[in-house]
Design a binder for these strands. Structure first.
Ligand SMILES: NC(=O)c1ccc[n+]([C@@H]2O[C@H](COP(=O)([O-])OP(=O)(O)OC[C@H]3O[C@@H](n4cnc5c(N)ncnc54)[C@H](O)[C@@H]3O)[C@@H](O)[C@H]2O)c1
Ligand SMILES: NC(=O)c1ccc[n+]([C@@H]2O[C@H](COP(=O)([O-])OP(=O)(O)OC[C@H]3O[C@@H](n4cnc5c(N)ncnc54)[C@H](O)[C@@H]3O)[C@@H](O)[C@H]2O)c1
Lengths: 243, 243
DNA sequence: GGGCACTTGTGAAGCCATGCACAAAGTTGC
DNA sequence: GCAACTTTGTGCATGGCTTCACAAGTGCCC
């Protein structure tokens, strides 16, 4: 008999016995995206091979990752898309929405504030803050930009969980210090600066120049290899001519 | 006698005997940033401890990383800031500028195009491309936005090495296919989509929603732990009351 | 010129992540 | 109810990265 909806497991609330590896955590959003896409296409059940393909990872890795969350598949069948999606959503903590403040409403801050993709992924841009008086009061993405004097007040009043730092590099440490003092324990930093935070505060950084530099390294390597090859060929050629 | 400028080593061109670990490559830009900052402050020589502190990493790791590039330090002294900076710059391949095309000039594309930080880090935004007719001709950051029909032409004519993809997710694969066909072998993708590229093409992705979701996971975990503790305390309390 | 203080460069150990390969478990068909 | 088939969950081997700890090398001082 095909089991219909897994009522029992759905009621049992919190598996993940203790500690999901960090590398796995970083891939859960990827699986969630893949599952959402399958769900939109009306797929009800998926095997680890198919899901791995959709998410662009190795299927053994996918299965091992999922095994850290619990035993949510059915041998011989695969995974129920909606059910697994729900489990991952719960594991990541996206059954609730998280309130986010963006600090530094310049080029990047504007783009982030106007981005529509966060809402559908569990985040609500709740406030925008900038130090520049001239920006205060400006309306961006339906929100008034607040002056940074109000930062602590905004964080407390709006019950903000996550701070996104998009200020110039030289201001990043001071801004992080302030939000941490105001009780924030999760920060996403776009400024190219080394920022220190106390134990217990999660700091992630996105550095676009670094990404480009890593690409440049590989690009150069390819070119260098090509040149070396050419040089070798040149020697061969020289030999041939001489010989 | 203190050695003045290391003329010999500077002439010897290409160390890095073969293969720098990927994890190390990803940190070289960080070291470069730290060295630039020290250089700006007029520091001439730095120990691995100090440099590691500036870059926010463990000093043993820093020394091991640098050892993959060559033996550029002086025991008992440390590293010459300018010299090391030059070596890392050369290793990453930033002695030349790399021409970049940004594809998809929406919220994010605008921010990237207007960002001043790329130029100083070895990258030149050489072209902007968008599929929307209405954007073609618009001037952004001193460049005319070109229509995507011209994509291949732009890549070839301007000798572009790196493509930055900032289109909606549904267009990302097609755009990547086109730039790869046009000869590009380095792509930075901002669209939240799984993109396949052939062997030999370097694809890096930046997914901001994923970053936030990882933060949410940890945030939830902290809260959950707090709640669990409270529950435990509640049991203790209940016992105490009953006992 | 020899000893002391300092710092690099690296061998070695331990840790974590990856991926293979297969037993266990479930389904389907007869 | 059994056999053949499918697919999960995981033990295990492998490899890469991190960190420790120290020998080897360098400069300085007397
Ligand atoms: N724009 C990009 O595409 C891009 C790319 C890579 C990195 N970055 C980094 O992201 C950060 C923001 O970039 P940007 O291009 O938006 O810069 P920007 O100069 O356009 O905007 C920075 C904003 O931060 C505000 N600000 C300054 N100090 C502040 C403080 N103490 N508190 C609150 N707000 C403050 C400024 O008033 C300004 O509005 C920078 O660190 C930059 O290096 C940006
Ligand atoms: N804006 C952000 O802060 C942000 C944050 C996270 C992720 N992203 C991702 O980055 C991408 C861009 O985001 P955005 O906010 O700038 O979106 P956007 O809709 O503002 O801009 C997308 C642009 O791409 C152009 N485009 C569409 N198809 C194209 C094609 N085939 N070739 C060339 N151009 C094409 C559109 O005309 C538009 O100008 C999206 O995939 C988004 O999910 C953006």
């Amino acid at each position: 008999m095909a089991r219909p909806t897994r009522p029992l497991a759905q009621l049992a609330p919190a598996p993940s016995p203790r500690g999901v590896p960090e590398a796995t955590v970083a891939r859960l959003p990827l699986y969630l995206r893949a599952l959402t896409s399958l769900s939109d296409r009306g797929v009800a059940t998926v095997s680890s091979d198919e899901l791995a393909e959709t998410a662009g990872v190795n299927s053994a890795k996918l299965r091992k990752d999922l095994s850290y969350l619990g035993s949510y598949g059915t041998r011989g069948v695969g995974y129920e898309v909606e059910f697994l999606r729900h489990q991952i959503t719960r594991e990541i903590g996206l059954t609730q929405d998280w309130a986010v403040v963006i600090i530094g409403i310049g080029n990047l801050g504007h783009a982030l504030a106007n981005y529509g993709g966060f809402a559908s992924r569990g985040f609500r841009i709740a406030a925008l803050v900038d130090a520049d008086e001239r920006r205060s009061g400006e309306e961006v993405a339906g929100l008034k930009v607040r002056h940074s004097d109000e930062l602590e007040d905004v964080i407390e009043t709006l019950n903000i969980s996550i701070a996104v730092v998009a200020t110039p590099a030289h201001a990043a440490q001071a801004v992080c210090d302030r939000v941490v003092a105001a009780g924030i324990t999760s920060i996403l930093n776009f400024a190219p600066a080394v920022v220190q935070v106390p134990e217990g505060v999660e700091l992630r950084k996105v550095d676009l120049s670094t990404e480009l530099q890593i690409l440049a390294y590989h690009e150069q390597r390819k070119n260098g290899a090509a040149l070396a090859l050419t040089a070798e060929q040149a020697v061969e050629l020289a030999k041939a001519v001489r010989g």
